[in-house]
Amino acid sequence: MNKCRKELSIILVLLMIAVLTACGGTKDASNSEETESEINGEEITIGQINWAENIAVTNMWKAILEDKGYNVKLNVLDMGVMMQALESGDLDAHLEIWLPVQDANYFKEYQDTVNFSEATWFDNAKVGLAVPTYLEEVNSIEDLNEHKELFGGEIIGFDPGAGTMDVTKEVIEDYNLEFELLTSSEATMLVQIGEAVESEEPIVAPLWTPHWIFSKYDLKFLKDPQNTYGGVEKIHHATRDGFSEDYPKVSEWFKNWKMNDEQIGKLIDYVEDAEEPLDGAKKWIDENQELVNKWVK
């Protein structure tokens, strides 16, 4: 009788192990199916603008997502086309929306058709007109008209579709500046700043931090008494309608993303110094894997 009871106990234990194993297998299969349904081979298309920090973060996320099995394409667009592509669904994400001031016009126009994340990845951004520090007599936007001839009546700008360029037009109106805002590209603007500084010539341009230009040259923001440029800016991301349903994990990772001045500065340096931006981004990821793991947990 005891022998029968012992055999029955062994059988029951084996049955319980089998059931638990089956349950675990079902869970693993479910997780696998969920992952495969999100990583479906389709491209996640991220919009990129040829600004130093944007090139850096878009390549960083391309490297992170591709390491997780996603297929990522970077699509270079200007800001106006970027927002239209998000609205139409031709673009999945754009990683750089400056609020509350710089991109307020785009937020107002597209807030009902594009998902602007409440989460921010950088909380200490600044925008304003900047000049070389050796221009000791020019410290405020209000000083510019007095020194109009010094600057040739020109503010050296960049991409015409950028929110900061629109705000700079407002600055010209608010301060009644007798200046013309020139458009080009960020790369051209930075070359002109570099040439001016090396020759110790005057130049004024709309700039922002985070940006490597401030570590390379001695520049200062002009005081903005009317606060047209605003105070501290925060950088958000935006996605097309339905992105969070199609890619819930990636959507959550974007919301977890957070960087400080030192981290974004080093990332920009690595990307700028590399032959290929993606290589610089991968180098930074290797050195900051613990931080990245917190985003993609």
Rank of each mutant, 00 (worst) to 15 (best):
G230H: 08
E34G: 01
K126N: 09
N260H: 10
E262T: 13
K73W: 08
K216S: 09
P248E: 08
A93R: 04
L267C: 02
N50E: 15
N31Y: 13
V131L: 06
K266E: 14
D279L: 10
Y70L: 00
V57A: 00
Y106E: 00
A63V: 06
K223R: 15
C23Y: 15
W98L: 01
K73S: 09
Y247V: 01
K62F: 04
K27C: 07
E170N: 14
E290V: 10
K216C: 03
D269Q: 15
K27Q: 13
V204E: 02
W284P: 01
M60Y: 09
F116K: 04
G194E: 02
T168Q: 08
I235A: 09
W257F: 15
W295F: 15
F122K: 02
E252R: 13
L129K: 07
L207A: 02
L150N: 00
Y270N: 13
I193N: 04
A281Q: 06
D269H: 14
P248N: 09
A52W: 00
G153C: 07
N105I: 11
L135F: 11
M16S: 10
M189F: 00
I285Q: 03
D78L: 08
L219I: 10
K62H: 07
Q289W: 12
W253S: 03
T113F: 05
A162S: 12
G161D: 14
A238I: 03
M189L: 08
K73I: 04
I193R: 02
A29M: 13
G69S: 06
D261H: 13
L144Q: 07
D78R: 11
K62C: 00
V292T: 02
D174W: 05
E180G: 04
K283G: 00
P225L: 06
W284M: 00
I97G: 01
E233S: 10
A119E: 11
A162K: 08
I264W: 04
T26D: 09
K148S: 06
E66K: 09
T45C: 07
W257Y: 15
T239W: 03
E137W: 11
E43Y: 15
